[in-house]
């Protein structure tokens, strides 16, 4: 690792730790919830951008993979993790024990969703365009209804992330540290993936599948790869959602949620990571900021959505990125 990279890594870590320690102390819990939700929305949006924006496949079932991640991680926490956390808390100081425990929870959600993504992706990615979209929508609904019928995770009652036999282990995530660490990892991984020379294959598949095949790109493999990586991060986002709320219900992962993520991606600009971040942040905050309007807020929110799309059909940023090069050109 070059010294520059070490410095960047250290900087990110320090900022995150500072955020984690300092923000909750003055931010009121309502705003804290919004900040957490924005982080989760960003993870979901950036990961879907890999499939929809960079690989040119059209998935509208991302919430299904969030559901897999949320429920698997919740079940892991309640049935296995709680005991582990309790023993860890006995051995180590609490912050250290928690920071060892969180990655396990997130990985359980991510891996389960990645497996689901693989199983769904292999057959579904043979389809193209609208048919793929419809199939992902169908898969997401089937996943959701299947979970609804599993009694071990609460079925229609929802699932509370709390283990009665391990009262010392509070399974809910505290602060923003976990959420924003994942945000950073997601953005870095997706950016490194698509803006590398190997990552050109994603965009080649998007631009022209036949041409991509003819120059020796294994298009199916690339599509499945994008789908699995995206599902992994959707699962992690689901795990974050479950553990910051402390309760999960399948209603949170209905197709409206999937639509919402697609809206982030398209409104931000297909093929722009920063666009997805921007749209996810703005559109997650907007309904809350509009709360003063009372019952009119969702009406205004939908008008905002239609209006923005009419004015900027290519999305807020098109396929450009707001990165260092852009900033230098603007302000340097």
């Amino acid at each position: 690792m070059s010294s520059k990279r070490v410095a960047a890594f250290a900087l990110v870590a320090i900022v995150l730790l500072a955020l984690d320690a300092w923000l909750p102390s003055w931010l009121n819990p309502y705003y804290a919830t919004i900040v957490t939700r924005i982080g989760i929305a960003v993870v979901a949006a950036v990961s879907l951008q890999l499939v929809n924006g960079f690989t040119g496949q059209f998935s509208i079932g991302h919430a299904g993979f969030m559901a897999v991640g949320a429920y698997t991680s919740a079940a892991f926490s309640v049935y296995v993790g709680a005991g582990w956390l309790e023993s860890l808390l006995g051995l180590l100081p609490a912050p250290l024990a928690r920071s060892l425990f969180y990655p396990l929870v997130l990985a359980s959600g991510g891996l389960a969703a990645a497996v689901a993504g693989f199983v769904v992706g292999i057959p579904a990615l043979r389809l193209r365009g609208d048919y793929l979209a419809i199939a992902t929508l169908g898969f997401a609904e089937v996943i959701r209804i299947a979970i609804l019928n599993v009694d071990a995770v609460g079925g229609a009652r929802g699932f509370s992330i709390h283990a009665a036999e391990h009262p010392a282990a509070d399974l809910r995530f505290e602060g923003f540290g976990a959420v924003y660490a994942v945000v950073v990892v997601t953005i870095v991984v997706v950016a490194r993936l698509v803006y590398s020379s190997g990552g050109l294959s994603f965009r080649a598949v998007r631009e022209d599948e036949v041409a991509a095949t003819s120059i020796g790109i294994a298009t199916t493999r690339i599509k499945v790869e994008a789908f699995v990586v995206a599902s992994f991060f959707a699962g992690v986002a689901g795990a974050l959602f479950a553990h910051s709320e402390g309760y999960v219900h399948t209603n949170s992962f209905a197709f409206l949620r999937s639509f919402e993520i697609v809206v982030f991606v398209v409104l931000g600009g297909l093929g722009s990571i920063t666009g997805a971040v921007l749209a996810a942040a703005v559109l997650t905050a907007a309904p809350e900021l509009l709360r003063g309007l009372g019952e009119w807020r969702m009406v205004l929110y939908s008008l905002l959505l239609i209006g923005t799309m009419l004015l900027r059909p290519q999305g807020l940023l098109g396929n450009r990125e707001i990165d260092l090069g852009w900033l230098r050109k603007r302000f340097g």
């Binding site: 809206v263 398209v266 409104l267 009406v299 939908s302 959505l305 239609i306 799309m309 059909p313 290519q314």
Partner: peptide, 12 residues
């Protein structure tokens, strides 16, 4: 783009 406005109209 029209797909997103369709979702927007539906929400509206």
């Amino acid at each position: 783009a029209p797909l997103i406005t369709a979702i927007g109209v539906s929400l509206l």
